[in-house]
Write a protein that binds this DNA or RNA. Structure first.
Length: 318
RNA sequence: GCCUUUGUAGCUCAGUCGGUAGAGCAGUGGACUGAAAAUCCACGUGUCGUUGGUUCGAUUCCGACCGAAGGCA
């Protein structure tokens, strides 16, 4: 017998900018729809970064199972999207096998899309030595030169990159050197196999951007009250490459080092978070599969959850 | 009360030796395939405090007034 479409796994996805209420909504939906949550958050994967990454607390999670949270050491510099995608697909399959609804929830657009668009990273290699060589060459010859090099191998991709975006240029050159195949071609091949999910995507946003920004400001103040400074002090001793990029720690470091007043650092932290939220919205907005829910158009949280449930039921994935 | 400085974009300020103005930040839009909470790109009209005067022409020079900061009494 041929495999029928009905063998697809139902997958509910909850996305949105930071501080929009994804965590709470995902948990409520898990309760009412017999689901489990798979986090799609590039920073909540790290241990001991609780307050700053707004990880759900044991209290919030209650009896809802959460996956891909709190399992990587903060000094691990090697964890990548590819690792995430593999783990997430496995988690989703296992949840579904238990006859429960997997709920992919998070704000890291790249992670979400890696999973739901089934991006295949297996033939796109990575090599530390080549990276160093390319970095050295860039130091010596400059960005324009590197972009010109890329244009020889992969003109299509080079045309989309600005010389200042050196990271992307070097990565594309790295891939080409290692495999002899251009990044453009890898990207094309990486999406040949469509995902095996029946998707329903919910996006949380606000009708008035200012409302989101107010929530962000308030949440940062709450994080400080909850002990973010201590957490930052603690984590700064042990975190490495990626975890170091998390918003909430690097902004407070100047205060911990006695270089800037606390209020200035807190303002910078709020600012960085607002910028981040805006970038997240840019990422998610282009995805036409998302059903947007405007949180500030509901009287209360209950109505919002009801509206979300309605969308899920009407989507026919259940 | 007097003296000095000052009033230009949401904020901090630059500038026009008189021809109606521009940076940074904020904000907005966008990109994104093995570090993505990262990285990168694009977008700058505002009664130049108000009101008189000089001038072909004033945000720019002069006067008055209003506001702010500092100093002297």
């Amino acid at each position: 017998m041929m495999i029928e479409q009905s063998n697809k796994i139902p997958l509910l996805v909850v996305v949105g900018p930071t501080a929009s209420g994804k965590t709470g909504l995902a948990i409520e939906l898990a309760r009412s729809l017999n689901g489990e949550v798979v986090s799609a958050d590039s920073m909540q994967i790290y241990k001991r970064m609780e307050i700053g990454t707004a990880k759900p607390t044991a209290d919030e999670m209650g009896d809802i199972s959460h996956h891909l949270i709190d399992f990587v050491e903060p000094d691990d510099a090697a964890f990548s999207v590819a690792d995430y995608a593999r783990l997430a697909r496995t988690a989703i399959a296992e949840i579904s096998a238990r006859s429960k609804l997997p709920i992919l929830s998070g704000g890291t657009g790249l992670y979400v899309n890696a999973v739901i668009d089934n991006i295949d990273y297996t033939d796109i290699a990575s090599d530390e030595k080549v990276r160093q060589q390319l970095n050295a060459l860039a130091q010596e010859k400059g960005n324009e030169h590197m972009l010109a090099l890329l244009a020889e191998a992969d003109p299509a991709l080079a045309a989309t990159l600005h010389p200042n975006n050196l990271g992307r240029i070097l990565r594309a050159l790295e891939v080409y050197r290692l495999t002899g195949i251009t990044m453009s071609e890898h990207q094309r091949r990486s999406r040949l196999v469509p995902a095996q999910y029946d998707l329903c995507m919910l996006g949380l946003n606000f009708s008035d951007r200012a409302h989101l920004y107010e929530r962000i400001n308030r949440r940062v103040d709450l994080m400080i009250k909850a002990g973010l400074l201590d957490e930052a002090q603690e984590i700064s001793k042990s975190y490495g490459g990626t975890a170091r990029q998390a918003i909430g720690y690097k902004e407070l470091q100047p205060y911990l080092d006695g270089e800037l007043p606390l209020e200035v650092c807190i303002d910078n932290l709020k600012q960085a978070t607002r910028h981040y939220a805006k970038r997240q919205l840019t990422w998610f907005r282009r995805d036409e599969r998302i059903h947007w829910i405007l949180a500030d158009t509901f009287e209360n949280a209950k109505d919002l959850v009801l509206a979300a449930q309605n969308i899920v039921h009407n989507s026919g994935i259940l």
